[in-house]
């Protein structure tokens, strides 16, 4: 994970900022932004390898942001955060190119596993 850059896109500012700090404490280079539009703008600036993306945000649907990210760079691995009660929305996101999904409220250990798996996949390709 040494050179891996991670971008968190979630409109819950406190959640995104705290998650970023927790990832940084684990040596992960993370940035947090708080809207879909801001996330897309930031793509070119920081060139993330992995994106943690909220499925529901006020300005853009997470699935639309996912499509734009994949258009920008198909190699970016996206992990979706979903607050839905069922797994359907997460599976739909994976069908549309997401690497995986995590249910809210997020269990950091589960998220870390997905991040490491995404990083491993990315480094093999």
């Amino acid at each position: 994970m040494k050179d891996t850059k991670l971008l968190i896109i979630d409109d819950e500012v406190e959640f995104a900022a705290t998650l970023r700090q927790r990832l940084e404490l684990r040596g992960i280079d993370a940035t947090d932004v708080h809207s879909g539009g801001e996330g897309l703008q930031t793509l070119a600036e920081i060139g993330p390898d992995i994106v943690i993306l909220d499925l529901k945000m006020p300005d853009m649907a997470g699935l639309d942001v996912l499509a734009e990210i994949k258009k920008h760079n198909p190699a970016i691995e996206v992990i979706m955060l979903t607050g839905h009660g069922s797994t359907a929305s997460g599976i739909e996101a994976m069908e549309k190119g997401a690497f995986d999904y995590v249910m809210k409220p997020v269990d950091l250990n589960i998220l870390l596993e997905k991040i490491y798996s995404a990083d491993e996949k990315r480094s093999k390709e």
């Binding site: 406190e14 959640f15 705290t18 998650l19 700090q21 607050g83 409220p105 997020v106 950091l108």
Partner: peptide, 16 residues
């Protein structure tokens, strides 16, 4: 959905 977001922040803050 809102509850999950609030719980998420509580969990992350406690985790931090």
């Amino acid at each position: 959905h809102d509850m999950k977001n609030h719980l998420g922040i509580i969990r992350e803050s406690n985790g931090l």
